[in-house]
Write a protein that binds this DNA or RNA. Structure first.
Lengths: 337, 337
DNA sequence: ACCGGTGATGTTAGCGATAACACCTGGTCG
DNA sequence: CGACCAGGTGTTATCGCTAACATCACCGGT
């Protein structure tokens, strides 16, 4: 009866190759002082046994793991999901595994708990997607010395941070509408406590002010299509509203439906621009002009900043900003005369 | 100068509490034979030092980690993203961390590589979201003895599997359209090599046959709104098409736009049902009737099956099916007379 | 009063890797 | 020609934990 023998260990490889386990270790870690012939023998033995180093043992002695912890909200919002996906890919390419700690609500307590879970696992570094101030507050609980990068966090906080340039995207979206001939542009914003939303409001306002256009009141919503629908029901009633910049594509979707119900044709009667460029935005009715953030770039920058901290041992608090691009489709036209 | 002293270890706690490190270990693992007073002393010391056990050391000696590896496609499709999110939450509740190995394409090679990366990390178990046959094929490369659960995989394969009952959902959707008075129901399917798509085709066909309705040819697409749009452009040309069941909500979105462009009003001229119930489906034009899978339930079942294997050491190949529900909105009406 | 059982604890031996050092061999140099 | 250096290799200690066994005090039964 074949007993399930344990996985081969370094000594097994050493025995087969006729060397000491330390030499096997040297081969594995690409130390220079190994004779070529020995290296080949060891590698052959590794292959023959299908040996794989025990990460736990390595982590124990080195005190480091090859794990990166990510704290993200438990949401299926397109933006966060894309970001996470891109980050996992980038990390895998760099030889790191990613452990995700989802959090139901972005309050300080939940986030701190998630960070602690990651610290328990001795992750090499932590990425926190902290798009609200409550989330950003939680970062104060993270002891110094833990490599940490914040994504979409508070621009005014001195932690290493990577963000999409929300204001620039919003500015461009708004200017695009103004250039189409609209006197001003209304804005349906995401939740006020999200930095993303705040940045977009800021860019929108700047564009209006730069053009000496009137700044209408901000319509504050959340990120959902439902909220966009409600905002749309209101805005549809106001004939002077001819252009709306929505803080994300789902808001825009809800708004489009409200307009459709009330008989206001987009873009003939009213122009709309969104933010995110969700994959189906090109199939809204009409196809949505929107701002596309480069999530892959954000992921790359984040990983870079984190690994830099891991090796340098911390140091300064650099900041990286990724520029989004405007994708023009069919939801923008000159205002009705 | 304060040297950054290393993290406290079990012996530090032991010293502070005046016991041996083994007693600390017993307290940590809830062994019964510890005097209450001792337990309290140890717990106080743990708290005072902010001691946290070293998982690597524990994993080294027990040979087990508290990590679950998930292999999923690098996609931001709503279904997979929701599932993943729900699974992470469930795993965290059970004290497991989740390491996600994203894969760009669902071919055998990529999946096997992702599985190997997880095995390198000595994960306690692996979940593979394997919605295509190429993905399911890769499971053959996973050695027996590795706890493994497949999600959305091949129903005909003898591996532990959790799936949504695609056929039942599709059946219900189709019957709903028939009951509204349509003579038959057309179907825009997802990619043919996806089990989800195949199951939905199956349920759709069953419902038609049970009602002795004509079975029109399947319109095969992928999961994108773009494909739904193309399918819609074709179907809109055929006056006899009065009801369409789309294999997911994004296909339905694209189809709705094509209908809108061609002047076919939904639901007055043509009824549509989708699948997935993405959060914004209620804000399509018109609000979409669709089938909602319970991803949280799938996640729970998956975790349960996996943990059972981890403790039982494998054994049989059970199978769990989760029933979806039909969500009725405004995209279905009786056919035009 | 003696003995075995039981509960509470301590001691020792690994788990599988890396780090530090010791040990050989040769070749080079004074 | 012996000392020294450096490259290649082996030996030993160690990381922080758990498992297994050893120990000790104390209990009740006969």
């Amino acid at each position: 009866m074949e007993k399930t023998s344990r996985d081969p260990a370094m000594t097994d490889v050493a025995r087969l190759a006729g060397v000491s386990h330390q030499t096997v270790s040297r081969v594995l870690n690409n130390h220079p002082n190994v004779r070529e012939q020995t290296r080949l023998r060891v590698q052959a033995a590794i292959k023959e046994l299908d040996y794989r180093p025990n990460r736990a043992a390595r982590a124990l002695v080195t005190g480091k793991t090859q794990l990166i912890g990510v704290v993200a909200q438990n949401s299926t919002l397109y933006g966060p999901a894309s970001l996470l996906s891109a980050f996992e890919e980038a990390a895998a390419a760099a030889g790191f595994a990613v452990s995700v700690g989802r959090v139901k609500v972005l309050d300080r307590e939940s986030i701190s708990a998630a960070v602690e879970r990651h610290r328990d696992q001795r992750v090499a570094g932590i990425v926190v997607i902290a798009p609200t101030s409550s989330a950003a507050d939680a970062l104060a609980d993270v002891p110094a010395g833990v490599p940490l990068v914040t994504v979409d966090g508070d621009p005014d906080r001195p932690t290493p941070l990577v963000t999409v340039d929300q204001a620039a995207g919003a500015y461009e979206a708004t200017r695009h509408l103004l250039e189409a001939g609209h006197e001003t542009v209304w804005h349906v914003s995401g939740p006020a406590d999200w930095f993303d939303a705040a940045g977009r409001v800021h860019g929108w306002r700047q564009a209006l002010e730069a053009a000496h256009a009137e700044v209408p009141p901000v319509v504050t919503a959340d990120w959902s299509a439902a909220a966009g629908y409600r905002a749309g029901q209101m805005l549809a009633r106001m004939p002077e509203v001819t252009a709306v910049f929505c803080s994300n594509d789902h808001l825009a979707l809800g708004l489009l439906r409200a307009m459709s119900e009330r008989g206001r044709r987009v873009p003939h009667d009213l122009s709309v621009v969104g933010f995110d460029d969700v994959p189906e935005a090109a199939y809204f009715i009409p196809p949505l002009t929107t701002v596309r953030p480069d999530f892959a770039a954000v992921a790359r920058e984040t990983l870079g900043l984190l690994l830099q901290q891991v090796s340098d041992g911390g140091a300064a608090a650099p900041r990286r900003t990724v520029e989004p691009t405007l994708v023009k489709r069919e939801s923008v036209a000159p205002p009705p005369r």
